[in-house]
Design a protein around this nucleic acid. Structure first.
Lengths: 405, 405
DNA sequence: GTTAAATATTTTACCCGCTGAAATAAATAT
DNA sequence: ATATTTATTTCAGCGGGTAAAATATTTAAC
């Protein structure tokens, strides 16, 4: 009798097909089997098999409705397939300085509830952080009919250097310790799969699944907030680097021995563009009237204050220089500038775009698209949720039986 | 009767396996089938099939000799497989400013002959360039018993912005025209498959196949010569960007509105590090004693001339800044500094390494290796040959019959 | 209203590449 | 000479995918 052991190659192959079908449905919305087969360049028979598996797992469902693509006049109508949001739920968390945001979403990414948990310290020990995350999750669930046990995945975004593959945080301003392996702590406190990632990478995932990156395979997402973050998507996947700490754009050096940065080094982009940098500059220049936020600086600039204009202007020039370097290196399809607040117009001005243009090696081919995306406050948590949905999709597909039931 | 049409998926799958086996033999040298099966995590039966195909195509051959890995005391001895260099020959060309270097190699990369064809102009029309390439190829072949018709591939390295997938050159200092599609010209003049690529990408290929990049999957190669070039290898493949003009490191901006560069922009790394930049600086500072080469500057620095020391020092600082930015973005396994001449010690000094170290976001994990590779003068042409061998390998594998003969 | 045509999906028979087990090959130890 | 060990090849079978046929479900035509 021959072995019945699953050959790993074949298993991976089939799951890869299932995942490709699932991803296509997620990005394109309600689609028919025949359209999926055409789009994925595969046979209808394969799509029938894959979708049957996904339906049995509760990941997708058949819906009634009109096909968006060419509607035939005659013949059997197409059956549309859509994500089934109701089977699984995921929590996306963003660890910010003052607050943890918890966004509970269904499997389509639709918001179930949002909860904000205040922090009294801007940094804490890993164990305390995970305990606080658990509390925040419980509070969020208590607003719904769910319990933590109903969650299929928890995804956590944090600023800093994170090796997501290992749930390992090299360093984060939210932690009092370096080199933290969260996988053990998660197993101890969180009763479902949990993932931690760099926050900018998560926003990149959100752009890819729900935002301006839908359908793109090579793009960069630059996040603008307290600091400057970067997410790199190459060939449809997040690029993280060998040790998981690549895509450090905020601390790219734009000036030899330049301004002092939070990180202790000199000349970092963030030291010219980050909000704390702008506030510091304004404070030095106008001791008596310290601005509280970047919006304050904007207001003063709009009302004609030369110093404010100059500060914002230099930030824009440095930012443009950094972006042009990204284009020179990556030559992406698109760069998405993502921010949750409206306080980064000075980084999207015509002058900045001119600076970018003038810094890119000149070819007679159109520049990559530079798109500005003003998200709501939920940007970061949505990013975490997007990543969680993706990871849980992978887990659920792997759990599918090898042979049809 | 059912269709016998090859399903493209399966065909690609088998060819991918054949190529993986071929690549393994190329990088590891003489190896037995059992070792290949273990290394590629596949079954001996598959390796038997793949190697039989590769042998019938003349790509590899069985050789006698001792296995390098654990030699068993008893049992059937392992049969070693090695590249068969004698079946196919490839020409690697480097278009430099004064000269075209032609390196004829066998399929193992062993030099058959080297020929240098002088140019009387530093730039010419695309058609003239291809004609000149043909002449240079003829001259090189005439030194051997080969003719151009015996070549299985011609690979051409050129400085500038090249979209290798399309054999399209956006811009090159060696051409009097922009936006040149070489595929038609190659068909017209070159009687075998021909490929054109950015020269730094080719050096990266050479490092991957023959040099310090063997076995690495994510590394960067920085070339230092007249200008500064970059080749990016991610997941074992050259990363070229969406329009094929990524990896432009020489024109990355390291200073806002800085020194004027050849390219017409300001603040490019090359404008601080390129040899013409150093010579220009020295000329301004010491009008009466213009240095001819970077080596001259080195000599003067070694003999204690402050101005020369200062010029080289600043170049090193700027270079270190650029490298640290690469590490921050890519977090590679390794960065290889490749140069054909010995005139870049000032870019590998301890001060430069300190500058790199101090510019990399700090994690408690070892920095990527920074390796210095002093090639001979053949560096560029060897790179072209490496790329040619790889491309021809792919072509030959694709030409294999679907069913065993 | 019935039938024909059109189109979507499912079923079925089979192809292809890979695998494990068995067979074979080629050496050494006894 | 025979047993043992190890490498390679052969071979039957598995799993995923496909083309073609079958089936399902609609509209158009009469």
């Amino acid at each position: 009798m021959l072995s019945n052991k699953d050959s790993p190659v074949s298993l991976d192959q089939r799951n890869a097909t299932r995942l490709r079908v699932l991803e296509h449905i997620r990005t394109r919305g309600a689609t028919s089997r025949i359209d999926i087969a055409t789009a994925l360049n595969t046979s209808p028979a394969t799509v029938t098999a894959a979708t049957a598996d996904l339906i049995s797992a509760g990941l997708i469902k058949e819906v009634v409705g009109e096909s968006k693509s060419k509607s035939a006049k005659r013949g059997r109508p197409r059956v549309l397939l859509q994500l089934d949001g109701s089977s699984y739920f995921v929590a996306g968390l963003k660890i910010a300085r003052q607050v943890i945001s918890v966004l509970l979403v269904d499997f389509e990414g639709k918001e179930v509830t949002l909860h904000t948990h205040s922090l009294n310290k801007t940094s804490m020990s890993p164990r305390d952080l995970v305990k606080t995350i658990y509390t925040a999750l419980e509070e969020a669930c208590s607003r719904t009919e769910m319990t933590i046990g109903d969650l299929s995945g928890v995804s956590i975004g944090i600023a800093g250097l994170v090796d997501a593959k290992r749930n390992f945080v090299h360093w984060s301003s939210s932690l009092t310790e370096r080199n933290v392996d969260f996988s053990r702590l998660f197993k101890e406190y969180i009763p479902c799969p949990a993932f931690i990632e760099n926050d900018a990478n998560l926003v990149a995932k959100a752009e890819q699944l729900f935002g301006l990156g839908i359908g793109l395979r090579n793009f960069l997402v630059v996040t603008i907030e307290h600091g400057v973050g970067l997410g790199i998507v190459l060939d449809g996947k997040l690029y993280r680097g060998e040790r998981g700490c690549g895509a450090e754009f905020g601390h790219a050096k734009v000036q030899l021995d330049g301004a002092l940065c939070q990180c202790g080094q000199r000349g970092c982009l963030e030291a010219y563009v980050g909000d704390y940098a702008l506030i510091r500059e304004m404070t030095v220049a106008t001791q008596d009237r310290k601005p509280e936020t970047v919006s304050d600086i904007h207001e003063r600039a709009n009302s004609g204050e030369q110093m404010a204009i100059s500060v914002l202007n230099r930030a824009g020039q440095m930012f443009g220089l950094g972006i042009s370097n990204l284009i020179n290196l990556f030559d992406p399809e698109c760069i998405i500038l993502s921010g949750a607040q409206m306080s980064f117009e000075h980084l999207c001005s015509d002058e900045v775009m001119d600076r970018i243009q003038s810094g890119v090696a000149n070819v007679d081919a159109p520049l990559p698209d530079i798109k500005v995306h003003h998200w709501g406050d939920l940007m970061w948590a949505k990013g975490a949720a997007a990543y969680g949905i993706e990871q849980v999709s992978i887990l659920k597909v792997k759990e599918l039986p090898t042979n049809a039931a």
